[in-house]
Design a binder for these strands. Structure first.
Length: 560
RNA sequence: GCGCCUGUAGCUCAGUGGAUAGAGCACUGGCCUCCGGAGCCAGGUGCGCAGGUUCGACUCCUGUCAGGCGUACCA
C-alpha cells in the first residue's frame, strides 16, 4: 500500500474510533456507519485531507452536520498520528491538517523503490489480454490504427504496472470475403503488370501498394503464375502478399514501439475446425437452426434485436461465427478478462459478440470492448475524410516520419478514447514544438542536467533517500512531493477504469509542479543539507516522470 | 425510426457525487548578472437546453436539441 493510502487508512480508523467514543458518551446516535470517503481537497486551504462523514450522518443522527463534525473533532485522538489539527468547514466537512514532514517517509520509499515505484499488486494473479489494432492485412496501417496502437499498448503497460499478467495480441483477419476481394485485386494488378487486359474487381483494393507488391512478385519470379489456373494463382499471390503485409505491419508497429506477444491468424480457426465446432455446438444446443441452407444464431434469445447469420447460404461462415470461436479460444487460453480495442464504427458488433460468448458458456462481462472514436484529419483547416479510395489517408509510417513516435503516441494517449479527436496535420508537423510532450520531456531533461551538474561538483550522493527530507517544507516542495506520491494510486486508477489518458493528465500536472518548484527554489549552491534534500526531490521527480513516459511509450531524454 | 458515443473557455481537451469547474493553444503584461527561458507568475470568459434524485450534480436518472457512428448472408 502506498504511503498516502496508509496515512489515509490510519485516519479512517481514528475517525471511526472518535465516532464510537461520541456514541458511547451519548453525544450522538446512529445505527449504521455510512460509507464515507476521505479525499484530498482540491483547495489547499481545506487541509491535507477532508471527510464527508458528518454530512452523511446528519439524517440518522438527526443533528446539524456541522454540530456532528464538531463532536467528532472533539473526540478525535490526534496522538500517534500525523494529524496536527482538525477543522469543521463548509456544510459539515472535517478538514485535517497534517504535521510538516508527514510526506517524508513516502518520498523516502519512492527513492528506495526507484523505477519500481508506482507498481502495485491490485491485479496480481489475474491474466488479461489486450487485443488491439487487428487491422485487415489488405492494406497499410494508417493513422486510425495508430491511435489504437498507442492506446492499446499503453493500456497493456498500465495493467502490467498494476500487477496483471498481460498479453498483447494482434488478430489477423486473413480469411473471409475481404481476402477473396484482396486476391482478385492482386490477380488483376499482376496480370495488368504483365500486359494483360485484366478487369479490376468492382469493389477491389485500389491502393498503389498492391501494385507495388505484385511488381515485387514479377521481379522475383517473372510471369511464373501467368498461365496458372486462376484459383491456384490467387492463392499463391494472396499468400505472398499477406506475408508481405503482415511483416510490414510488424515492422512499422515495432518502430512505433509496439511489440505483440501473439499474432493470431483467423484462418487457423477455420483450418483447425474451431469455427465448425462452434456452429455444431450452437446447433446441438438448440441456440442455432438451419433455414434454407443458412444457419442462424438465435441472438434474439440473448437480447439482440435480430437473429444473426453464422453460415451463409453459400456455405461460408460469417466473420461473426469466427469471432465467437476466436473468443472461446481466448478464454480457453486462461485469460480472466479480455479487452478489445475497436474503432467506434464497429460498436454494433459488441452486443452481438457478447451474446455469442454467452451462448457458448462464458460470462460476457469477461469481455470488455473499448470503443475508440475515429480520428478526424485536418489539413489547411479542412476536414479530410480518411479514405483509401480517395488517397486521403496518412499511413502510420508517414506519421512516424513526419510527427515522430514520441509526439504521436503522447497525442493519441492524451485524449479519452471516447473523444472524437481532430488531428491537425499542419500543426503536428510545423508546430510540433508546442506539443505538450515537450513540456514533460523538458522537465526530465532539466532534472538530468541538474543532477549532472551536481555530480560534477561531487554532490551527486545527495540525490538519495539518505538526505534529510524533512527540510522540504516550502509549499511548492510539498505540492510536488504530494503529487509524486499519488503515482501508485494514479496507475491503479487508470488500470481500474482502463483509461490510459489519466497517465498523461497526471504527468503533465507533475511536470507543472516541478517547473514551479524549480522556479522558486534553488537546488545547487544551497546549504549542503538542503541541497541534498532538493537533489533527492529532483531525482524522485525524474523517476516518476520517466515511469509515466515509459508507460506511454515515449522517451525520457536527458537532454533536448 | 431504433441503438451506441459525444456536447465544458475563442480553439483542442481534462475533471473519481463534494467546498470558488481546470490545462494547453491563442491574446496582454511581468520574471534569473545565478542550476536548461521548450520554463515561471499574473490577467477572463464556460458545464447544449429543461426537469428530477441528493445536504450537495459537469458527474446519477428522465426528456429534449445538436454532431458522429452503427442498424448486411461486410468486417
Amino acid at each position: 500500500m502506498s504511503w498516502v493510502a496508509q496515512v489515509k487508512e490510519k485516519l479512517q480508523d481514528k475517525l471511526v474510533l472518535a465516532l464510537e467514543a461520541a456514541k458511547a458518551a451519548g453525544e450522538i446516535s446512529y445505527q449504521e456507519l455510512p460509507g464515507f470517503i476521505i479525499e484530498t481537497p482540491k483547495d489547499k486551504n481545506h487541509g491535507d485531507f477532508a471527510t464527508n462523514l458528518a454530512i452523511l450522518l446528519a439524517k440518522q443522527a438527526q443533528q446539524n452536520p456541522r454540530q456532528i463534525a464538531q463532536i467528532i473533532c472533539n473526540n478525535f485522538n490526534k496522538e500517534n498520528s500525523w494529524v496536527e489539527n482538525t477543522e469543521v468547514a463548509g456544510p459539515g466537512f472535517i478538514n485535517f491538517y497534517l504535521k510538516p514532514g508527514w510526506l517524508s517517509p513516502g518520498l523516502r520509499e519512492l527513492l528506495q523503490k526507484g523505477s519500481g515505484f508506482g507498481d502495485s499488486l491490485v491485479g496480481a494473479g489475474k491474466k488479461i489480454q489486450v487485443e488491439f489494432v487487428s487491422a485487415n492485412p489488405t492494406g497499410e496501417l494508417h493513422m486510425g490504427n495508430a491511435r489504437g496502437a498507442a492506446i492499446g499498448d499503453t493500456l497493456a503497460n498500465i495493467l502490467a504496472a498494476a500487477g496483471y499478467t498481460v498479453e498483447r495480441e494482434f488478430y489477423i483477419n486473413d480469411a473471409g470475403n475481404q481476402i477473396e476481394k484482396f486476391g482478385l485485386s492482386l490477380e488483376a494488378r499482376y496480370l495488368q503488370l504483365l500486359g494483360e487486359d485484366a478487369p479490376f474487381p468492382e469493389d477491389g483494393y485500389h491502393g498503389g501498394d498492391i501494385t507495388q507488391t505484385m511488381q515485387q512478385v514479377i521481379n522475383i519470379s517473372g510471369d511464373k503464375y501467368k498461365n496458372m489456373e486462376s484459383a491456384l494463382r490467387r492463392e499463391y499471390l494472396t499468400c505472398y502478399a499477406l506475408e508481405q503485409k503482415i511483416s510490414a505491419a510488424k515492422t512499422v508497429l515495432a518502430e512505433f514501439g509496439v511489440e505483440y506477444d501473439v499474432w493470431f491468424s483467423e484462418q487457423t480457426l477455420h483450418d483447425s475446425g474451431a469455427v465448425a465446432a462452434i456452429i455444431t455446438e450452437l446447433l446441438e444446443s438448440g441456440k442455432a437452426h438451419e433455414e434454407n441452407g443458412t444457419i442462424w444464431f438465435k441472438a434474439t434469445d440473448f437480447g439482440i434485436e435480430k437473429d444473426e447469420v453464422l453460415v451463409r447460404a453459400n456455405g461460408i461462415p460469417t466473420y461473426y461465427a469466427a469471432d465467437i470461436a476466436y473468443h472461446k479460444n481466448k478464454f480457453k487460453r486462461g485469460f480472466d478478462k479480455v479487452i478489445n480495442i475497436w474503432g467506434a464504427d464497429h460498436h454494433g458488433h459488441v452486443a452481438r459478440l457478447k451474446a455469442g460468448i454467452q451462448a457458448v458458456g462464458y460470462e460476457p462481462e469477461r469481455l470488455q470492448v473499448i470503443l475508440m472514436q475515429l480520428v478526424r484529419l485536418l489539413s489547411d483547416g479542412e476536414v479530410l475524410r480518411m479514405s483509401k479510395r480517395a488517397g486521403t489517408y496518412v499511413t502510420l509510417q508517414e506519421l512516424i516520419e513526419e510527427v515522430g513516435v514520441d509526439a504521436a503516441r503522447f497525442f493519441f494517449v492524451m485524449r479519452n478514447a471516447d473523444s472524437q479527436m481532430d488531428f491537425d496535420l499542419d500543426l503536428a508537423k510545423s508546430q510540433s514544438v508546442d506539443n505538450p510532450v515537450f513540456y514533460v520531456q523538458y522537465a526530465h531533461a532539466r532534472i538530468s542536467s541538474i543532477i549532472e551538474a551536481a555530480k560534477a561538483e561531487g554532490q551527486a550522493k545527495g540525490a538519495s533517500a539518505e538526505a534529510n527530507l524533512d527540510l522540504l517544507l516550502e509549499p511548492v516542495e510539498m505540492n510536488l512531493i504530494r503529487k509524486l506520491l499519488d503515482l501508485p494510486d494514479e496507475i491503479a486508477y487508470a488500470a481500474a477504469t482502463t483509461s490510459p489518458h489519466h497517465i498523461i493528465t497526471y504527468v503533465m500536472d507533475l511536470a507543472s509542479f516541478f517547473h514551479s518548484f524549480y522556479n522558486s527554489c534553488r537546488v545547487l549552491g544551497e546549504d549542503p543539507e538542503l541541497m541534498a534534500a532538493r537533489l533527492a526531490l529532483c531525482k524522485a521527480t525524474a523517476i516518476c516522470t520517466a515511469k509515466c513516459l515509459k508507460i506511454v511509450g515515449v522517451s525520457a531524454p536527458t537532454k533536448m
